[in-house]
Design a protein around this nucleic acid. Structure first.
Lengths: 225, 225
DNA sequence: TAAAAAATAAGACGGACGTTTGACTTTTTC
DNA sequence: GAAAAAGTCAAACGTCCGTCTTATTTTTTA
């Protein structure tokens, strides 16, 4: 009804396909892929149900479109930052710069619609539906392996298991911050305010760097029975 | 059909209500609350559809029952360990012991059905459906505040924001490990094997302890415009 | 302005969902 | 062994789902 009031997302023109993207992003972020119906999305977007099919064919490809709109520029930014932090592949880059290149764009995202998308992508990486996770992982495949390669270069002394477990901690913290479920705020008695990207980076980088800089975890020798 | 082959969960007798619990746990862990229908659960359990209503009234209360069966003993174990690590509340407990008390039981869980439940509870803490998250959070309310209190006692010098962000990292890593989505394994080129609880603790404890032992993050001074 | 293309609309498709009913069967109780 | 309780069952309730068809309207093109 009100044409200008609730277009929170910046990109996408004010045509039906763009309004569908915006509405879908907002609703998927709140309730997840399977928690929202196409009907709800079209109603929120103020377009006819059939338009969703007309522009995006299926619900999953609408979801993919929502994701691609944000992830593709975000990945470009991550790659650019990583390139800058690691111009010479034969030399080890600086750990903090690599972490910033990898995590920074995912926290900031490229517009004020970031808050919504951040939540969505945090949710989706552990979405119970396999097709959702696969869609999301696929879109990160362009950057994530390079990040792992950089970490390997920084710590060639780490075994595969050590690398794996440090990655789990880094991804876990990153995804949890992005999903922003409000639980930690509830537990320390603070209000659940939107993530402040600058503050997030100020904490995340040293915390995650400290994990990665630890000496290798000695594997427990096979115990004698 | 085969009575003894696939009773993965230890507790719950082999009666319909127990078989429902087992089937529900397995299926919820695979596909999430909204990804499984009551019909699928009853079929997997080999009981009539109406039995689900007879024993548990609603799908959500079946979910809650699944959760309570594991969480209540797990919380008891966490409380016991925390009590042991922190007998005198006026003294600061040892950080690693507190982390072990809090995280250990969630990784190990009390039976070989732990693998299934671990995934389920990792998934559910970021489930898109609010009623699911609330159910889960509610069950952790008995222990989580005590854990935060212990952390405060260990580091009284930390400001609220520092505590908050360290909590986010700790919870994030813990939940990510429990959800075990296989992504890190994929990225480092290792097979996605079930979590080895001993190995998990060997890595998680020093990693998360190192985060918590960092000096306070200096808040950036309010910048002049 | 006529023809072609694009967009929008209403509605129905078959199916799955959570939940409930009411009749039937088994088990328990005395 | 009769009465009561507990458990099981098939069937249906109303609702919502993703998708698609077909018709109509609007816009573009020539």
């Amino acid at each position: 009804m009100n044409r200008s009031e609730d277009t929170t997302a910046i990109p996408a023109a004010d045509d039906p396909s763009g309004r569908l993207l915006d509405a879908a992003e907002r609703l998927f972020a709140e309730r997840g892929f399977n928690g929202v119906s196409v009907r709800t999305i079209t109603a929120e977007a103020g377009v006819n149900l059939a338009s969703a099919h007309y522009y995006y064919r299926t619900k999953l490809s609408l979801f993919r479109a929502v994701f691609e709109r944000r992830v593709l520029p975000m990945n470009a930014e991550r790659l650019a930052r990583l390139e800058k932090a690691w111009p010479d592949r034969s030399l080890a880059p600086d750990l903090r710069e690599v972490l910033e290149a990898f995590i920074g764009p995912t926290i900031i995202v490229s517009s004020e619609a970031g808050e919504t998308f951040r939540r969505l992508s945090g949710l989706s990486s552990t979405d119970p539906a396999p097709e959702v996770r696969e869609t999301v992982f696929g879109l990160y495949d362009e950057v994530a392996p390079l990040f792992v390669a950089a970490l390997r270069k920084i710590r060639p002394d780490l075994g595969e298991r050590d690398l794996l477990w440090r990655l789990k901690c880094i991804f876990g913290a990153m995804m949890f911050v992005r999903a922003d479920n409000g639980r930690p705020e509830q537990l320390v008695g603070l209000p659940h305010a939107p993530v402040d990207a600058e503050e997030a980076m100020r904490h995340l980088i040293p915390y995650l760097a400290s994990i990665f800089e630890l000496p290798p975890v000695a594997p427990t020798k096979r115990r004698r029975k």
